[in-house]
C-alpha cells in the first residue's frame, strides 16, 4: 500500500445522499479477476447514457471540475460489500472521500486500500459544498481545512489505521506476524 501524503486539492462535489456501491460500480462490471481498471466504470450509469455517451450534467463530466478529493452526501458507500467500489474510486484518481457519514463496510474497504475517508459534521459539509476552494487534508494532524476561508475541522481516525495509512502498512502483514498468537488461540 502507498503511504498517505498530505493532500491539497480541489474537490469534486457530489451532494447526493445514500450513494450506494451499486452506483459507484454497477454489478455488471464486477466480472474482472484483477483489481485494476475499475475507474473507467466509476459511477457508470450516472456518467454515461445507454449508448455510452457522456451525460454532460454529471459532475465527473463537467469541464474544469477536477480534484483528488470526492465530497459526497451522507451515508456514502451503503449497500453491497464490494471492495470494487473503493478500487474504482482509487483507480479514478481520488485519494480522499469526505462525507458527513460513511457506511461501515465501505469505510473498512477504503482504508484497506489507502483511500482516506473523512467524516465531518453536516454544517461543515455544507460549507465545503458552497465553497469554491481547495481543501487541505492533513492526516498527521487529523485536520481538514477549506483553503479559501481557512475554516477547519478535526476528523477522527483510529490510531492503528492512521499508522497504517501514514506508513503504507496493511492489515495482512500485521496478521501474518501474529500467526503464533493465532495458533495458540486455536489450541486453547
Amino acid at each position: 500500500m502507498k503511504k498517505f501524503e498530505k493532500t491539497i486539492s480541489h474537490f469534486v462535489p457530489l451532494p447526493i445522499e445514500h450513494v450506494d456501491t451499486d452506483q459507484i460500480i454497477p454489478a455488471r462490471f464486477l466480472k474482472a479477476t484483477t483489481r485494476e481498471g475499475f475507474g473507467e466504470n466509476l459511477f457508470r450509469d450516472w456518467r454515461y447514457d445507454k449508448s455510452g455517451d457522456e451525460i454532460e450534467s454529471f459532475v465527473l463530466n463537467k469541464k474544469g471540475v477536477k480534484g483528488e478529493i470526492l465530497v459526497a452526501g451522507k451515508n456514502f458507500g451503503c449497500g453491497s460489500s464490494r471492495e470494487h467500489a473503493a478500487w474504482a474510486i482509487v483507480d479514478y484518481g481520488f485519494k480522499v472521500v469526505v462525507s458527513s457519514f460513511f457506511a461501515d463496510i465501505f469505510k473498512n474497504n477504503a482504508l484497506n486500500n489507502g483511500l482516506l475517508v473523512v467524516a465531518v459534521d453536516e454544517g461543515f459539509l455544507e460549507q465545503i459544498f458552497t465553497s469554491d476552494s481547495q481543501l487541505i487534508i492533513d492526516l498527521e494532524t487529523q485536520n481538514i481545512t477549506i483553503k479559501g476561508s481557512g475554516e477547519s475541522r478535526q476528523f477522527s481516525i483510529n490510531p492503528y489505521k492512521k499508522e497504517c495509512l501514514l506508513n503504507g502498512y496493511d492489515d495482512i502483514d500485521y496478521l501474518l506476524n501474529n500467526r503464533e498468537a493465532i495458533e495458540a488461540f486455536e489450541s486453547k
Binding site: E83, I105, I182
Partner: peptide, 22 residues
C-alpha cells in the same frame, strides 16, 4: 458479517480479521 476482498485475503491468510467491536 460481510467483508471486503482485502478482508477475504486476511481470513485466507490467517483465519482472522481485524475488526473494531461494534
Amino acid at each position: 458479517f460481510g467483508i471486503g476482498t482485502s478482508e477475504v485475503e486476511m481470513v485466507l491468510a490467517s483465519q482472522c480479521v481485524l475488526q473494531h467491536k461494534p
